[in-house]
């Protein structure tokens, strides 16, 4: 185990963890305002698919912007169904996940991909159509800082979305806990009728947070595809959206704790692949793959204790639709 090896593992840990971090950031806001966005997995895979197609058609920038738009759109659909029509959040979320997996599955076939690409950009050069291979987002090492041993590789030589995820979690933590906007969001999740009587537009707040969660989940998918693993296959995100959902609980709805949790899950996953490379424990990958889910179940049990729940500030009306008594 040389220094390079450790550096490489840590770098991959952060890169893998960023997928979970980005997806969980938006979800933290949605859940803080009382809405469980179970469509996270579907939104994420739609983000990955969008980024694939648009990075081929118009490049990386368009890919990121479009995937954010697509995710926001899916969040908007969810918010209409769940916030305004007060349909069951679990069912709608699952339906959206199925929709996302189904829609994104189409582009698995090169023929359909070609149709789509030509529709989006008729002047697409022939060689891109022939290879249909996305380029990875370029790494931007930060000068000087990236030369620090170990830490440099771990935090300062990544692509732009990794930096963005770290800055975003700081900002989102600040907004959630230190500003009046954050107070409003938390109060809506804690006691919507109280918030309503104080003049807060509960529906509007929930709509915005759900759209935000869609946008972030989709961005996470885009990052996963063009920033980490630019090779398409069906169900490319492979349940990572659900792990992000788990991470939100592990992080107890706190964007800063989400960073730690994300790198923990990212580390577990990186380790899983590394162990396989070493031929170590042919059985272990499956148990390691279970780990995030088991950790989540245990976390759920621990934080469900009434006193701990109060102290951590779990949103009290999570999953309960709000309807104004008239």
């Amino acid at each position: 185990m040389s220094v390079e090896w450790i550096e490489q593992v840590l770098q991959l840990t952060v890169q893998m963890g960023t997928v979970y971090l980005l997806a969980s950031l938006g979800e933290i806001y949605a859940e803080r305002s009382g809405v469980l966005n179970l469509g996270l997995e579907g939104t994420m895979i739609m983000g990955a698919a969008t980024s694939f197609i648009f990075s081929l058609a118009y490049g990386h920038f368009a890919a990121i912007i479009m995937s954010i738009i697509v995710g926001a759109l899916m969040g908007f659909i969810l918010s209409i169904l769940v916030v305004d029509m007060k349909l069951n959040q679990v069912i709608v979320g699952l339906a959206l996940t199925m929709l996302g997996i189904g829609l994104s599955g189409f582009i698995t076939f090169p023929e359909i991909r070609k149709n789509l690409l030509l529709r989006l950009n008729p002047y697409l050069p022939q060689e891109i159509l022939a290879t249909q291979q996305s380029e990875k987002l370029p790494e931007i090492p930060i000068p000087l800082l990236s030369d620090i041993p170990i830490l440099g590789k771990m935090f300062f030589s990544h692509n732009i979305l990794v930096y963005f995820s770290l800055i975003a979690s700081l900002i989102m933590w600040f907004i959630l806990f230190k500003t009046s906007i954050g107070l409003t969001i938390r109060s809506v999740g804690e006691n919507p009728s109280m918030a309503d009587s104080l003049g807060v537009n509960v529906y509007l707040v929930r709509r915005v947070t759900v759209i935000l969660s869609g946008a972030f989940a989709s961005l996470a998918g885009a990052y996963f595809f063009i920033g980490f693993h630019p090779f398409w296959r069906e169900e490319v995100t492979a349940g990572r959206g659900f792990i992000a959902l788990a991470l939100v609980i592990l992080a107890t709805w706190n964007p800063l704790r989400a960073i730690l949790g994300a790198y923990l899950f990212g580390g577990v996953e990186t380790f899983q692949y590394r162990l396989q490379l070493f031929g170590l424990g042919a059985q272990s990958p499956y148990f390691l793959a279970m780990l995030p889910y088991i950790v989540t179940i245990i976390t759920l049990i621990i934080i469900s204790t009434e006193s701990i729940k109060k102290r951590l500030g779990a949103p009290a009306s999570l999953g309960i639709p709000y309807s104004r008594e008239e």
């Binding site: 997996i101 189904g102 829609l103 069906e234």
Partner: peptide, 12 residues
């Protein structure tokens, strides 16, 4: 040669 996802779309 339509991906199996077509069914998932119908279901969803």
């Amino acid at each position: 040669k339509i991906p199996g996802a077509a069914v998932e779309i119908c279901q969803a």
